[in-house]
Design a binder for these strands. Structure first.
Length: 699
RNA sequence: GGGCGGUUGGCGCAGUUGGUUAGCGCGCAGCAUUGACAUUGCUGAGGUCACAGGUUCGAGUCCUGUACCGCCCACCA
């Protein structure tokens, strides 16, 4: 049957993907490399950044899938032992929050179910969404080795996590400590600094009078009988243990060492001097609450102050506070305290104040700082290793300027709080501990745990270290740094040589795409509308210069048009080919040195160079221009004219047409795999491979 | 508060080490055409390259400053 006039991706894509899966060529051992292949002993490995099982994929995933698949498909055609490992991430807090939200719709919370039932419920969720995500990757055409699919919470992976934890523990790098940690009262867990999201909020700066104790009063010659502190968190005053001023501050020099009476509480607390106090802010005198503020906690340590916890894990005032405030929620307590201070005439003034409020990055609840017993991983030595790997050039970032934020962060890094009071995650391997590990502790092991570590597997020997890691910039420090030091620590080698930071996909208006804002675009919807190849080519075409992408559907339209052009040009070549009885050859040596061949060779050279430098957009543009304008508009039209004069030159032109078409299909295949494969399957050529996937890449 | 990036035709973007008429996609206008393709072909309109100075024989491209936009990082109560 004659191929349809217009290319219809719907009739092609599922069929072709099935063909690929059945061929087995996604796995590195599926086909024998040619004897003359210089790369046959080299491997090329990518680990897919495992998507969180919290929902469906977004455009960022689609973009990253295109990048990785282009790299993988090209290397596969070059004859490398190519492995792209897929998988998903259990995403501790994110998934737990998602499932809790589901429960809430049923009027339940996780405590109603209990730990075991709740975890069962999440496993049911992971079954659905994990598979959904893998299905979406397949729709995009990802040529991952699905037989090696991993999940960060599967049984084997659990072994890796345990082994890692015990290694650190035995080495003395893991310790338990009572520290002030970020705490989400809704999730009831600690959070790392990186898991906070700050939002700017209008609030107030309250100026509160702390009265001096009577004997202190007698000793001061001034007429002030109080010191004023400014705060944005009046409710924490219930836990104050001192008032601090800068030692150089002349205004307060004679007050240092004196005592004040903490309003509403009645506790006597000292006025101390500490360098952390900024003279210029507020009144230059700051209330010190070591239990609920990080700076204060450090001041407390320096001055040997008590820690009085007045906010508990659920965000309520504790029994350490005076009776009237006990059990109140933070907002209620704040209101009552302001009220009471006003009545006592201790509120000097209230100013409007805009400040950054930390919120839980998963559930958007205001995060509290509370003292809590947690597990920490010592970072200083590990961070040094991670710094060295990049400074020595063993790992390169592309674009290079992302090395700076990476190095800056590592330079100032604090110990990593790795315990979470969640139910969904890896349990800390020590008896009697209910805490789980930060989800990033397990994903830090991804490049080698997916290959079988801690067992010394064949895969590990063959495919580690991996080659390119492609990811979004916002998880450089959450994930990339931690993979790097983990790889060095456990494998003795950096886990990859290149970190590819891809652009962020924004809306056309320049907004961040997000579900909650309603600005997200579903790649699968686009695939249904335009076809996967159109989506892929549209994305690749826009991957220029490395800056963020304002997504516009017009590029996908272009992709669809291009696919159609390719389809019809191929139809033309094939229709005219049928005239010949003999199968046509694509032997390069028989080709004349004409203009189209010259242009083709330039295209090959340019595409190779651009792909080696991760210039995907440039490569896509080059291919587009060559195929459409040089090949279709000029060369094909010319062959029509020359054919009219007689059939003598017809055969030669056929070979040429077929050669250029086949080479173009090879070059385009990494970008638009479905349509190129479909056409390849129909081509009347000798020595056809089972799939275009394993054809020889043009050099 | 610190760091990074952006500002080029209606929209989305390219412009390598400074050098003849600043490119691409989408859109727009006119013309063409049933024989690969109307998801087409040809032709064309449309930009004082954010602003102000400076370096240079010559700057979208280098330097200084300004404005606006975006992102990341940061314990200023």
């Amino acid at each position: 049957m004659e191929p349809a006039k217009a290319y219809d991706p719907k009739t092609v894509e599922d069929k072709i993907y099935k063909l690929w899966e059945e061929s087995g060529f996604f796995a590195p051992e599926a086909h024998q490399p040619r004897a003359d292949n210089p790369n046959k002993n080299k491997s090329f490995t990518i680990v897919l950044p495992p998507p969180n099982i919290t929902g469906e994929l977004h455009m960022g995933h689609a973009l990253n899938t295109v990048i990785q698949d282009v790299l993988i498909r090209k290397k596969r055609m070059e004859g490398f032992k190519t492995l792209w490992i897929p998988g998903t991430d259990h995403a501790g807090i994110a998934t737990q929050a998602k499932v809790e939200k589901e429960l809430r719709k049923e009027g339940l919370n996780r405590f109603d179910l209990g730990r075991e039932k709740f975890i069962e419920r999440i496993w049911a969720w992971q079954e659905i969404y994990g598979n959904k995500i893998l299905g979406q990757l397949k729709k995009l055409g990802a040529s991952c080795d699905w037989s090696r699919t991993r999940f960060t919470l599967d049984k084997e992976y659990e072994k890796a996590v345990q082994a890692a934890f015990l290694h650190y523990y035995k080495k003395g790098l893991i310790y338990q400590g009572e520290r002030v940690v970020n705490w989400c009262p809704r999730c009831a867990t600690s959070l790392s600094d990186l898991e906070l999201e700050y939002t700017e909020e209008k609030s107030h700066l309250w100026y509160i009078k702390y009265l001096l104790r009577k004997d202190a009063l007698r000793q001061t010659q001034g007429d002030d009988n109080f010191i004023i502190v400014a705060t944005t968190r009046p409710e924490t005053m219930l836990g104050d243990v001192a008032v601090a001023v800068n030692p150089k501050d002349e205004r307060y020099k004679n007050l240092i060492g004196k005592k004040v009476i903490l309003p509403l509480v009645g506790r006597e607390i000292p006025i101390i001097a500490d360098r952390a106090v900024d003279q210029k802010f507020g009144t230059g005198a700051v209330k010190v609450t070591p239990a609920h503020d990080l700076t204060d906690s450090e001041i407390g340590l320096r001055h040997n102050l008590k820690i009085i916890q007045v906010i508990d894990e659920r965000g309520r005032i504790t029994k350490e506070a005076p009776l009237p405030y006990q059990g109140l929620k933070i907002a209620e307590a704040r209101e009552k305290i302001i009220d009471d201070l006003t009545k006592l005439n201790l509120l000097e003034k209230t100013e409007d104040y805009i400040h950054q409020v930390p919120k839980c990055y998963r559930c958007n609840t205001v995060v509290e700082l509370i003292p809590s017993k947690q597990w920490f991983l010592k970072m200083s030595d590990l961070a040094k290793q991670a710094v060295k790997a990049v400074k020595s050039g063993k790992i390169k970032f592309s674009p290079k300027n992302f090395e700076k934020p990476y190095l800056d962060w590592l330079k100032n890094v604090r110990d990593w709080c790795i315990s979470r009071q969640l139910w969904w995650g890896h349990k800390i391997p020590l008896d009697g501990v209910d805490d789980v590990l930060d989800t990033w502790f397990s994903s830090a092991l991804w490049p080698f745990a997916t290959l079988g570590w801690p067992e010394n597997t064949k895969d590990l020997k063959t495919f580690y270290p991996t080659d390119v890691l492609s990811t979004a910039r916002d998880i450089i420090n959450l994930w990339v740094t931690r993979m790097i030091f983990s790889g060095i620590e456990f494998m003795g080698k950096a886990p990859f040589h290149t970190v590819l930071i891809h652009p962020t996909v924004l809306t056309k208006e320049g907004q961040r795409m997000s579900k909650s804002l309603g600005t997200g675009i579903d790649p699968v919807g686009l695939i249904e509308k335009y076809g996967a190849d159109a989506v892929r080519f549209g994305i690749a075409y826009q991957l220029l210069g490395g800056q963020d992408i304002k997504f516009s559907e017009e590029n996908i339209v272009m992709g669809r048009k291009f696919c159609n052009k390719l389809w019809n040009a191929s139809r033309f070549v094939m229709l005219t080919s049928d005239v010949n009885d003999e199968p046509l050859t694509s032997d390069v040596n028989e080709l004349p040195k004409c203009q189209i061949i010259q242009q083709l060779n330039q295209t090959i050279e340019s595409v190779n160079k651009n792909l080696e430098n991760y210039q995907f957009g440039e490569a896509a543009h080059t291919l587009y221009d060559f195929f459409w304008h040089d090949f279709c508009d000029k060369f094909i039209e010319e062959t029509k004219n020359s054919a009219q004069g007689g059939s003598a030159s017809g055969g030669k032109n056929q070979k040429l047409l077929l050669h250029v078409l086949l080479t173009s299909l090879k070059l385009l295949h990494p970008f638009i795999p479905f349509i190129t494969e479909e056409i390849y399957q129909q081509l009347p050529i000798k020595d056809k491979k089972q799939s275009l996937m394993i054809e020889k890449w043009p050099l």
